[in-house]
Amino acid sequence: MKIGKVSGTVVSTINAPVFEARRLLLCDLLDETGKKPEGRSLIAVDAVGAGAGETVLILDEGNSARQVVDLEDAPIRAVIVGIVDEIEVESKTRR
């Protein structure tokens, strides 16, 4: 799974059926601390009602994505499966 920040909404009227009536969010991928952008972004279907600027958990694998939208052979790859409240990364100093 990846961590990203919602940075835009993709508006599209002509698309594969799975994207009908589903929100497509443009997410800028972040590093493991959830702070530094990685310079890459991807489009994910929103499954949790993620809002502007929120840090989200992105599932970027087709079979699991199809499971989330419950469509057996939909051409879908990335789905937002969670809104991140907090990220704690092993601090440098070992206790």
């Binding site: 919602v6 940075s7 835009g8 909404t9 993709v10 508006v11 599209s12 009227t13 002509i14 698309n15 594969a16 994207f19 497509l24 969010l25 443009l26 809002g51 502007a52 600027g53 051409p75």
Partner: peptide, 11 residues
């Protein structure tokens, strides 16, 4: 290609 983009709106 799975969709044609009309716009990418700033959230």
């Amino acid at each position: 290609i799975v969709g044609i983009v009309d716009a990418v709106s700033e959230v």
